[in-house]
């Protein structure tokens, strides 16, 4: 019984991280229709930048996170303007955009290794303490992860509901053509969502940095899990991405209750496979 509770706790914590990644990715994907595979390397790059700001320049952690978010926003927008926009404008099919972002993925992952070296980047002895709930252990980082996710998710939905750009973003997500007809500048909306989505990835990167540090290949898992969270939840729905991410974390963790743990990712993907066959457009309404 202890084990399943512990696995549940871990699942919620990890699921929060996936969900966080998912809502950032889902915002970009749902609004622009671009499979932003370079979301992963942007995530990785901002983790490295934050590490560098802290370890080399000695900046305090919150300052580094804010700067890291700004960096990610700039990077994401740049990727959109330089690579995606020209392709989308030429009417390229979406998988050309997908391969282009895979190209970007390769460039960034390798450049990180060249610039920062191939060793792992960690913050020395950054600790949040350990808490016991009965026999279940949770670390401060795990709790922080859940809280950060909830805060970001709430802030994002408030922004989409009340913010200046919120209604425009929702309109574009619903129907691009209609949005264009009613005079919404879809280009600006795309830029805004790339900025916000990338910033969310940087927050997730900060989580990872304190959890286990950054290494060059972290980007792939980030974008893969984010993608899955979004698709399982239903494209175009922030709540769907959040639920998808949490579910992924829970399945991956509790699914191992009675199974050998090397089957962890297999189980997660098997569930994904079944969910997709059962509900092809995701758990919540997808478009």
């Amino acid at each position: 019984m202890d084990l399943i509770l512990q696995l549940l706790a871990n699942g919620i914590s990890n699921g929060s991280q996936y969900a966080l990644l998912g809502i950032g990715f889902g915002l970009i994907f749902g609004t622009t229709g671009i499979v932003h595979f370079a979301y992963g390397p942007v995530f990785a790059a901002s983790a490295y930048v934050m590490w560098w700001l802290i370890a080399a320049l000695g900046l305090p952690f919150p300052v580094a996170v804010v700067l890291g978010m700004a960096f990610a926003a700039g990077f994401g927008v740049l990727a959109y303007l330089v690579i995606y926009e020209p392709l989308v404008e030429r009417g390229s099919p979406s998988f050309v955009v997908l391969v282009a972002s895979l190209g970007l993925f390769i460039v960034i992952a390798n450049t990180l290794a060249i610039v920062f070296g191939t060793d792992a980047k960690t913050l020395p002895d950054f600790s949040y303490g350990i808490y016991f709930l009965g026999d279940v252990v949770v670390t401060g980082v795990q709790i922080a992860q859940v809280l950060v996710f909830m805060a970001v998710a709430l802030a994002l939905s408030a922004f989409l509901k009340y913010g200046t750009w919120g209604s425009a973003i929702r309109a574009v997500t619903d129907n691009v053509d209609m949005a264009r007809i009613v005079g919404i500048d879809t280009r600006k909306v795309a830029i805004v969502v790339f900025a916000i989505g990338s910033m969310i990835s940087a927050i997730a990167a900060a989580n990872l940095l304190v959890r286990e540090g950054a290494s060059t290949h972290i980007g792939f898992f980030a974008v893969f899990y984010a993608f899955i969270a979004v698709v399982v939840g239903g494209v175009g729905s922030i709540r769907g991405a959040a639920i998808g991410g949490l579910l992924l974390g829970l399945v991956e963790s509790t699914g191992m209750w009675k199974l050998p743990t090397e089957w962890q990712s297999t189980i997660a993907f098997l569930v994904l496979f079944v969910v997709m066959l059962w509900r092809p457009t995701g758990l919540l309404r997808g478009n």
């Binding site: 979406s94 997908l98 899955i228 698709v231 297999t266 098997l270 997709m276 066959l277």
Partner: peptide, 19 residues
Amino acid sequence: VGGHYLVVVTLALQVIVID
């Protein structure tokens, strides 16, 4: 399913086979 959903489902299949 089609489109992006098929992408994800088949990526999952790929991962399952290699696992």
